[in-house]
């Protein structure tokens, strides 16, 4: 490599580092997320469906009282989703038949590593925090509900019955409590240790360890490790995930990647369209101008031709008239001469 080229590369690197903009930690546009972020591992094989987590969640988040009390077991006969009054719900799945032991699964925001809600929000109300939680800022929210549309897990809910200050409602992974060094409400309340709070990386190790130790008890998959680019809530179960209401067809593509191609075309259109359309405009104007010139030339030509024809006709007519006149004069002269000759001849005769 030549010295000048090396110098150029060095200069490039220096310029990059000196830039005031935050630089990319990972290369080639591949991002692995916040390495020290927290998460929760939900082991459904330990969950007994007591709904203590729902109760604790309701309390720590000051949510309105539920329609049916938390100790009412009949609630579990319906499959529920999160709503504006419940950031988390526990559902029962009778996967082992009506007589076998049911499986319970807790549902709440999965705190995606690349959140679809954040990607969708046009006012930037959602933030993925370095601690792992995806938090929502109601003070800027317009209420378009694109986040509800975008969430692959159908988690965010909306306060449809509030006229003035409706909010999007969803689990915060108890972000304020975690900041204080406390556990999330649901994790703290769980009597069965079905929920484990910790660093996401450690939780994956724990989950794998359990699966390795008890291969008969678990399905060999940690749900949330790769789904939609990875989530901070992770799940291990003994029953196939799809039988417990998990979507297993979500793929591993992070949400922002789905729209990045279309968004990348925006500046291309802005860049190329004005030049292209301006060019077409100039060409069409020019075409019209040339057409007009040709038309004008054709008209002029036609006028000239007509003029020439008219001139020729006039000339011919004039000549004809002249000829006729000459002939008439000649005839008249001849006649006069003849008459004169007759007269002279008659006199002599």
């Amino acid at each position: 490599m030549s010295t000048s080229r090396r110098k150029f590369l060095k200069w490039l690197t220096a310029a990059g580092a000196a830039s005031a903009l935050p630089s990319v930690a990972e290369g080639h546009g591949h991002f692995t997320g916040y390495s020290d972020s927290y998460g929760v591992l939900h082991d459904t094989t330990l969950c007994v469906g007591c709904r203590s987590c729902e109760k604790a969640c309701n309390e720590v988040n000051d949510l309105p009282a539920p329609d049916r009390p938390f100790d009412d077991p009949t609630v579990l006969s319906d499959v529920r989703r999160t709503d504006e009054k419940a950031y988390t719900v526990v559902n029962r799945y009778d996967v082992n038949g009506p007589s076998g032991s049911p499986v319970f699964r807790k549902l709440q925001c999965n705190h995606c590593k690349e959140p679809a809600c954040a990607s969708a929000c046009f006012v930037g109300a959602f933030t993925k925090t370095p601690e792992g939680a995806v938090v929502y800022d109601a003070s800027v929210c317009v209420g378009c509900r694109y986040c509800l549309m975008a969430c692959p897990f159908d988690i965010p809910a909306y306060e449809y019955n509030k006229a003035l200050e409706p909010r999007v409602m969803k689990c915060t992974m108890c972000h304020p409590r975690v900041a204080e060094g406390k556990l999330p409400g649901c994790v703290e309340a769980c009597p069965m240790e079905a929920l484990t709070f910790g660093k996401r990386d450690d939780l994956i190790t724990i989950a794998r360890e359990r699966i390795r130790k008890y291969p008969d008890r678990y399905i060999d998959h940690v749900y949330g490790e790769t789904e939609v680019g990875g989530t901070n809530w992770l799940y291990i179960t003994g029953a196939p995930f799809e039988t417990l209401g998990f979507r297993t067809d979500l793929g591993v593509t992070p949400a922002p990647e789905l729209t990045s191609g279309a968004l990348a075309m925006v500046p291309v259109v802005i860049g190329v369209w004005p030049a292209l359309l301006g060019g077409i405009y100039i060409m069409s104007q020019r075409k019209e101008k040339i057409a007009n010139q040709e038309k004008a030339a054709a008209v002029k030509d036609a006028i000239n031709t007509t003029q020439a024809k008219a001139d020729a006709a006039l000339k011919a007519a004039t000549e004809k008239a002249k000829n006729e006149k000459d002939k008439a004069v000649e005839k008249a002269v001849k006649k006069a001469l003849d008459d004169a000759a007759k007269q002279t001849g008659g006199g002599e005769a």
């Binding site: 935050p22 630089s23 930690a25 692995t32 690349e114 993925k128 370095p130 922002p256």
Partner: peptide, 14 residues
């Protein structure tokens, strides 16, 4: 050097 970017979301935001 200022803070670095960890997520695609943040990268796209910038």
């Amino acid at each position: 050097m200022s803070e670095s970017i960890h997520t695609l979301q943040e990268f796209m935001l910038q």
